[in-house]
């Protein structure tokens, strides 16, 4: 309980949590407030915002409700961002733990693979992957995770290398614990905190990568995405700039919210350390 209280003591955490709460509320409320297909035509094309109160943010080139698209887009952004980051952290933690704990040739092989992934720009990797396999939500998640797991893997490995030498790991060996159980039950949970500290950066990057892929037309075509909305608006940027600005602002706020909340977590753990 006191951990939560410490978290909400930092202004970053309060601002970040407010933004994220708003975003989650939007995502959850989307099917209730806008039950129909957000991609259906709702009115005249290119209606500017604040003209018609049934369509407060106006309509796009095809006459679709921008507000409905924005709400449904929040669902995609959050889902892809969280799923990709979770996958990246999971893969990274497992690879890093195995490499650090096993050492020797296993470590060498795993870390050279990590190097290989790290030398290819992650956006290029995602782009190539989606182009080959074809755009769908699952593929986009996998494509983003593919480029994001190397950071967590390196951090996990470094942490595991130091934990491996502690007495309690020796103690676990002495009682005859299986090496895999030692790695994943004794070592990994204690190596996680610095890895999790990366999560806000990874979630934010994943949301941005998803938007970029959608912007290039490589997002799931059956879903509304903010990146797709920006791309749509680009063709009429001079006459109807709001079509790009609205989802763009949503994207910026989301990434900012994730960063701020992540900063709050780091601050609150630092506070705890300095207290003890």
């Amino acid at each position: 309980m006191s951990r939560l209280r410490r978290f909400f003591r930092t202004p970053e955490a309060i601002a970040g949590s407010l933004i994220l709460a708003l975003l989650v509320a939007m995502a959850l409320a989307a099917p209730l407030l806008f039950p129909g297909d957000p991609q259906a035509i709702a009115g005249p094309a290119l209606l500017p915002p604040f003209q018609n109160w049934a369509l407060p943010l106006g309509t796009d080139r095809l006459g679709r409700d921008v507000l409905a698209e924005l709400f449904h887009g929040a669902r995609t952004s959050l889902a892809v961002g969280l799923a990709a980051a979770t996958a990246a952290l999971l893969i990274g933690a497992v690879v890093g733990t195995l490499a650090g704990f096993a050492g020797g040739p296993i470590d060498e092989v795993l870390m050279r693979i990590t190097d290989a992934f790290q030398t290819v720009p992650s956006f290029l990797l995602a782009l190539a992957f989606v182009s080959i396999v074809g755009p769908s939500l699952g593929v986009v998640v996998a494509a983003i995770a593919l480029g994001a797991w190397t950071g967590p893997a390196r951090v996990a490995r470094a942490e595991v290398l130091s934990i491996r030498e502690r007495d309690y790991v020796a103690g676990a060996r002495v009682i005859g614990m299986h090496p895999l159980e030692i790695a994943f039950r004794e070592v990994l949970p204690n190596a996680l905190p610095p890895v999790l500290a990366l999560s806000s950066v990874i979630v934010a990057a994943a949301i941005l990568t998803e938007a970029a892929l959608s912007f290039l037309g490589l997002g799931d075509p059956n879903r509304v995405t903010w990146g797709g909305m920006i791309a749509e608006g680009r063709t009429v940027l001079r006459t109807a700039p709001f079509l790009s600005i609205v989802p763009g602002v949503a994207l910026v706020l989301t990434v900012l919210g994730v960063y701020l909340a992540g900063e709050g977590v780091v601050e609150s753990t630092a506070m705890r350390r300095s207290l003890s």
């Binding site: 502690r166 020796a170 060996r173 005859g176």
Partner: peptide
């Protein structure tokens, strides 16, 4: 290993925190 056990110097470091 069941038959050959160990007790460490620092009992705090010897257990998973």
């Amino acid at each position: 290993r069941a038959k050959l056990q160990m007790v460490f110097q620092d009992p705090l470091a010897a257990f998973n925190p």
